[in-house]
Computed example of a mutant assay.
Amino acid sequence: MDFLGKQVKAHKIKAETKYPGVLKKSGDIIFWLSADERRVPLKLEAKIKIGSVKASIIDYKKGNDKL
């Protein structure tokens, strides 16, 4: 995938949402995660009732792995 002007290997994951009941909402959210061992969330797109939402990571700093 092209990400911030670079070609990056990524996994594309599609999640379906469904809400039962009177409103019966449904939609798809698509996530792109880096294909390395960190699986950093790179981008997401979701369709909503009034349009769509798109988000991309702009900076990443590795945290402390010790818990």
Rank of each mutant, 00 (worst) to 15 (best):
G27E: 02
D59H: 06
N64G: 00
L67F: 11
S52H: 15
L42P: 03
A15W: 04
I30A: 01
A35C: 08
A10H: 06
I48T: 14
K62L: 14
K62A: 14
S52T: 10
K61Q: 15
P41V: 00
P41W: 02
K47Y: 08
Y60C: 06
G5Y: 05
V53L: 15
V22S: 10
D36I: 07
L67D: 12
T17P: 00
E45T: 13
S26W: 01
N64C: 01
I13R: 09
K54D: 13
Y19T: 14
K49Y: 07
F3Y: 06
I57D: 01
K62H: 08
K47Q: 11
P41T: 01
F31W: 14
I57N: 06
V8W: 00
L67S: 09
L67W: 08
N64D: 14
K62P: 04
E16A: 09
Y19K: 14
E37W: 05
F31M: 07
V53Y: 11
M1Y: 08
P20K: 08
W32P: 06
E45A: 09
A35V: 06
K9R: 12
L4K: 11
A55Y: 05
S52C: 04
P20Y: 05
L33K: 04
Q7H: 10
I48C: 08
V53D: 10
V40K: 12
Q7N: 06
M1Q: 08
Y60H: 13
K12T: 09
I13H: 05
K66A: 12
K24S: 11
A10P: 04
I48P: 07
G27T: 04
L67E: 13
I57L: 15
K9V: 04
F3E: 00
Y60T: 07
A15R: 12
E45H: 11
K24W: 00
N64P: 05
I50L: 13
V53N: 09
I48Q: 14
K66D: 14
I57H: 03
A35P: 07
I30M: 03
S56W: 14
L67G: 12
A46W: 03
S26G: 02
P41K: 00
